[in-house]
Design a protein around this nucleic acid. Structure first.
Lengths: 142, 142
DNA sequence: TTTCTTTTTTAGAATAGTTCTTGATATAAA
DNA sequence: TTTATATCAAGAACTATTCTAAAAAAGAAA
């Protein structure tokens, strides 16, 4: 058996996923905290405010389910804890080494992430993951 | 106190790092296994053949030291174990989802990794990390 | 509805990769 | 030499995440 829609508000974004209370809470929290690119524990902390009985395991489960359903994206930088992002457009991430914040970086108009790369002839690219490190405009001024 | 050179053969690549037997072994192994992009445990396994008394902790220490000295690079894909790479040229990594191998991908002539990206005005980029997932030419034929 | 089946949740145990701690060794400086 | 510093080895500790098993919830069938 599989997915049924229960919540019309988010159904379209959930790709026909069964929408439980927990998934809804986790999804909302990821959206609210989008700018922070929260880790699983950060989502957990916030989610508990809305639903005190939710467990960390459930937060992990929901994040995985939502990721698999392409409702959110998992963002990894080095070996740090994964962060989660509701931005579904192709984009890169910029990590400021000074303030530790994460910014979404869009592609230039009509640009392609694999553009500068001399890909092996005949390879099939599913996904290009781009992470940048540096100092953000705010921190450069300090 | 800091670095002294002991091994003229690799000194240039080690950025003036104190060259101990262990670091030398680890460095050699990473070079030998470059095509495999070995993990720390893979390096450990091979290093033990050359130096049976070496410990896993030491392999981790050496890999970190060599990485900090820019003699090798640490490569991360998702949350998998880190891999290590002696290729110091700017390059991306391509991960074949079928055969699990990793390929180095070079930049096109005069191209820049940050080219397609609309970076925040005034930001300073230290490092651009590019990882691609897909199916390699070999696996596509199967 | 009531019952049956499947999915999801919870809590805690387990795991994997990595880092830390401590005492022993080795290397360099004086 | 003697002294100071850096590195090593072994194993314990840590952290993010996944797994396990039992309870709860959701949906389907009757």
């Amino acid at each position: 058996m599989k997915e049924t829609l229960t919540d019309p508000l988010t159904a379209d974004k959930m790709g026909g996923l069964r929408m439980t209370k927990q998934r809804q809470v986790v999804y909302e929290v990821v959206q609210e905290m989008a700018m922070e690119h929260p880790t699983a524990s950060a989502v957990y902390a916030k989610a508990k405010e809305l639903m005190p009985t939710i467990s960390l395991a459930t937060v992990y489960n929901c994040l995985e389910t939502l990721t698999d359903a392409h409702a959110i994206t998992q963002v990894n930088i080095d070996r740090e804890a994964s962060r989660f992002c509701p931005n579904l457009q192709p984009h890169a991430h910029f990590f400021c080494a000074k303030c530790d914040s994460v910014f979404d970086v869009d592609l230039h108009h009509k640009a392609d992430a694999s553009e500068p790369w001399n890909l092996p002839e005949g390879s099939l690219i599913d996904e290009v993951n781009v992470a940048m490190r540096g100092v953000c405009p705010n921190c450069r001024e300090d």
